[in-house]
Design a protein around this nucleic acid. Structure first.
Lengths: 122, 122
DNA sequence: CTTGACCTTGACCCTGGGGGCAGGGTTTAG
DNA sequence: CTAAACCCTGCCCCCAGGGTCAAGGTCAAG
């Protein structure tokens, strides 16, 4: 199958497929005319990458999952490295939520402060 | 004062000062040799921009605050537009926290699912 | 007057995950 | 034959700068 077929089946854009390749996640064969050719396994890979990116992993962080799939597993997340990647991402999210929660508190403090300052001036 | 003095007093890098200028937040005069010249007010502006960026506002979103300062107010956030910008940012943060909370739930679901799948296989 | 240290300038490439466009080659249907 | 629909590579854009560079200015000591 060609790139647009793969993209359509996996639910991503052609551009995204080429980007995944540039990140080393796909290695399509080339036809004589230079066109990329993919097989059915690549559809699963691209779907997996899409799902993981939507979970906020970087393209690089999807590598263990892809390797897990390529190793013949039916699921990309049953390998130890994948579980580690999940836990790492959860920790990142927790850290980010904590940061944002703190940020929100600082913002509301500033807002109420500025509001009361205005009231005082009136 | 010159750019490195401004940067040092405001606690940012020279590079950042030049970036703020490229975003229209500063308009320094130039000496005969082309060097940028700043006055004391610019220190307050840069400090304000730094503080707002650390709160996650974009350079563009800092404009109302800078205008408020330039208008002669001692605080950048006493103008109505600044209060609106604060509220907008708080809403953004809330949305982001909600997204991340949902994301975290999806990640933990995936993790426990993958873990139990592994256990089942053993 | 010259050397050297330090400062300034603009200009370039880099980040992550692509979007959008240009300009060209290929293939397929009418 | 031609037009549409593909495909290719390559460039610029996002955001807030960081890193590095070459070129030139400034200021003190020697």
């Amino acid at each position: 199958m060609r790139i647009s077929d793969l993209a359509a089946e996996a639910g991503v854009t052609v551009k995204a497929v080429r980007y995944y390749e540039s990140q080393g996640l796909l290695k399509p064969r080339r036809e004589a005319n230079g066109y990329r050719t993919y097989d059915a396994d690549d559809v699963h890979v691209v779907r997996e990458v899409k799902a993981l990116l939507s979970l906020g992993l970087t393209a690089e962080q999807t590598c263990p999952f892809i390797e897990c799939l390529r190793a013949g597993n039916e699921r990309a997340d049953v390998c130890p490295a994948s579980l580690t990647a999940y836990r790492t991402r959860i920790a990142e999210v927790d850290r980010r939520i904590a940061e944002l929660t703190d940020l929100r508190a600082r913002l509301t403090d500033l807002l109420t402060d500025a509001e009361s300052w205005r009231t005082k001036q009136l």
